[in-house]
Write a protein that binds this DNA or RNA. Structure first.
Lengths: 188, 188
DNA sequence: ACCTTACTATACCGTACGGTATAGTGATTT
DNA sequence: AAATCACTATACCGTACGGTATAGTAAGGT
């Protein structure tokens, strides 16, 4: 494994364990067996390192999420796919999931929040389009696309948190259960 | 207002805006119009300041939550009360709610997480007892008290987040809606 | 008058931070 | 053989951090 990958790997572990602010560049270098100029050669700053980390880990999930949000007049199917892709995202790289979750919920005026903002948008945007498209087929959903987006993703996180703490699998069954519960919230 | 209260008030604003790590003691002092020895007189350390902040703001909520979790063989009633008290907690001091939420979801090895851990337990414990008590009256809930606790509190957070971002009121109607959705998840 | 107590300002401590200037190294290109 | 390139180590920069030693001040008790 080359130095760039080693740095990214150790940065993920340290950032996820101690947070962005509390993790020093020197610490990442020590853990990776390199020195600072090497790190600054590959990533132009601490921020640049975090940006690269987010890009590498988010990209496949966002791509799959976009597919999951392609509306084909079957909203329940879409919702199941959104939940499945999000569960898979969390399960396949739990460390990164924890990191991004803590950053999303970090105070809004910190560097960490700045860096993750575009990715939050990239996640919300396709889900929001999905519910906007579904509105046209279902009158009593009108004007609530934004609310549905927040609630669906919020519920996914609640399920993931539960699965992590209870050590149960984030499988399709759980996604189905979450979908039923979410849809009940919509149509009641 | 005395200096102690001024410091606590400004610390809340700054910690909630920029985070515990990113907020310097000097910044809090400047904002409060005092100097560091004054702060260190009232609070023995930066950590002590945060602990005092949590204690003052959490205590009334935990007390009310405990009442809400007193089981009288009417679980739906208890759940409604848990949601109501939590919604009220968030709405009456949104800044503090945001602060504690970001700390709860912060990386588990930081000082901020250490400080808040006992309060997380103080919140979980009465809700867990509630579901444990309800288990005895309802066989098909057996062994899931922990899962219900996490899901209920997680759902409350999802609703609060939605209410904040959509600028809608965290009133009893919303608590009722959240309860229905949660109970659907239990009994299905 | 004297002592204690609660509180506050000036000025400083050691440490760690993010980042870099300098000087290489070893492989590839010309 | 010379020059170029990607990469890496040593040693250092200025700044900001959490925290404190010292020296008061102002009020109340005796």
């Amino acid at each position: 494994m080359n130095n760039r990958e080693t740095i990214l790997e150790n940065a993920l572990i340290l950032f996820a364990s101690f947070g962005y602010d509390a993790t020093g560049v020197q610490e990442i270098c020590d853990q990776s067996g390199i020195t600072k100029p090497t790190l600054y050669h590959y990533f132009r700053s601490k921020r640049g390192l975090m940006e690269a980390l987010l890009k590498e880990n988010y990209t496949p999930y966002i791509k799959r999420l976009k597919d999951a949000c392609e509306y084909r007049r079957d909203l329940p199917q879409n919702i199941a796919e959104v939940l499945r892709s999000t569960f898979h995202f969390a399960e396949s790289n739990l460390l990164f999931y924890k990191l991004q979750f803590s950053m999303r919920n970090a105070p809004a005026r910190g560097e960490a929040y700045d860096i993750i903002t575009p990715w939050i948008k990239a996640q919300h945007e396709p889900v929001l389009s999905l519910f906007s498209a579904a509105e046209k087929d279902n009158g009593n959903m009108r004007g609530r696309a934004q609310a549905y987006t927040i609630t669906l993703l919020g519920m996914a996180n609640a399920y993931i948190q539960q699965a992590v703490e209870e050590d149960i699998a984030l499988n399709d069954d759980l996604a189905y259960q979450a979908r039923q519960q979410f849809m009940y919230g919509i149509f009641s």
